[in-house]
Amino acid sequence: MKRIGVIANPKRPHAADVFDRLVRKANELGWKLFADEASAQLIPSATVIGFDQFASTVDVLLPMGGDGTVLFCSKLLDESEIPILGINLGSLGFLTGVSEDSMEAAMDALDAGTCIKETRTVAQCVAPSGTIRRALNDAVIGFGGSSRIVTLDLAIDGAPATSYSCDGLIVCTPTGSTGHSLSTGGPILQPGCSAFGISVVCPHTLSNRPLVIPDSSTIEVTVQNSHKALLLSVDGQDVEELTTGDIVRITRSENPAIFLYPPDYSYFSVLRRKLHWRGSNL
């Protein structure tokens, strides 16, 4: 019997109907469902467990909602090897590879062991205070209390790379390359790439270009000059404020995140739909 965890965003449209379908299919497959207290309101037959129990209790975790729900679940599982199969309650996301219409087919594939398994790079971000955060998407430095630009020094493996006059800087994983980094002109990295992307927010230069470096590198960002307190955020969650002289170090975590996708899943198909790639009209 598979032990399946469910963490959901119950505010999504038609969530109740999708949960009813989930329960019926789980019963058909002989699965035992576990859910947090809020999600269990829509799954009365599920066993209620605390967030800190999922990593030691379930075989697979099903985030049901959007990409934000997947990020929350990834943080929840931390360094465990529990795979994630994201079910989107709405339009298809970058991380939630299963639409609500194809949920039952994806559950059949999971039960049959035919899902595609992807190992995703996770970054480890060390703040000046010593606080360590894991980033499935990105680490962002910027967004202080005024509009004045700051100076950030970038070093790769101890070697000075460059200095940026800018509003901020983003270090992303391949998974996060289609997030905030993309809006700054950063590169799209296929999830299997062993790389980090580095992009700058509003650089005060015309020659700036994003960087792609091996994820075996150690990235150091030093706040060289700032007239305001900057904010370090990881996967959209505020970590701490930064001031002049502070250094943020980013490396690859030894423990990646594991995702499952249906057998017919195509990353580039998702890109085409989400980014509205249409090709030439000529």
Rank of each mutant, 00 (worst) to 15 (best):
A195Q: 05
E79P: 04
T96C: 13
E254Q: 14
N225P: 00
V234M: 08
V58C: 10
T151Q: 12
V140P: 00
H14Y: 13
G192A: 11
C166G: 04
G158P: 10
K32R: 14
I43S: 08
N281R: 15
G93H: 00
T162F: 13
D167N: 09
P10N: 08
R12T: 11
C193D: 03
V270M: 02
K75F: 08
S183Q: 05
R24C: 11
Q237L: 14
S217R: 06
I149R: 01
D153W: 04
V239S: 00
P263G: 01
T243S: 11
V18A: 11
G86V: 02
V140N: 02
T173P: 07
S165R: 13
D215V: 10
P256D: 05
F51G: 15
I84C: 05
T178D: 06
F34G: 02
F54G: 00
C202F: 10
G86S: 05
W277H: 06
T121S: 12
C73K: 03
R148A: 13
A155M: 10
T121W: 01
Y164F: 15
N255P: 03
I82K: 10
L33W: 05
R120Y: 07
R249K: 13
N255Q: 15
R148C: 07
L206P: 11
L42P: 03
P187K: 01
A112K: 15
I49C: 04
R21S: 12
P187A: 02
K2E: 10
V248Q: 02
P44C: 06
L242M: 09
R3I: 10
S163N: 09
H204I: 08
D67M: 03
G5P: 11
F196V: 08
A40D: 09
P210M: 02
L260E: 04
D138I: 08
L271E: 01
P187S: 03
L189G: 03
T131I: 14
L136T: 05
S194K: 13
T251K: 06
F94R: 01
C202E: 06
T119A: 08
I250M: 07
L29G: 03
Y164P: 05
S183N: 07
I82D: 05
A229K: 14
L136H: 04
A135K: 05
S146W: 05
P128K: 05
T218S: 10
T96S: 12
F19D: 01
T121D: 00
N9K: 13
V200L: 06
T173H: 05
A229C: 11
P63L: 07
S199I: 10
T244C: 10
D157M: 06
D20G: 11
L33H: 02
I188N: 03
V122A: 06
G66L: 04
T184L: 15
Q41N: 12
Q224A: 15
H204D: 09
D157N: 15
K75R: 15
G68A: 09
P187M: 04
P44N: 06
L33C: 04
K11I: 15
L231W: 02
P187I: 04
G50E: 09
L271C: 02
V212L: 05
P187W: 04
P174F: 08
E104C: 13
A127D: 03
T121I: 14
A139T: 08
V150L: 02
R24M: 14
A135L: 11
L152W: 04
L77V: 03
D138N: 09
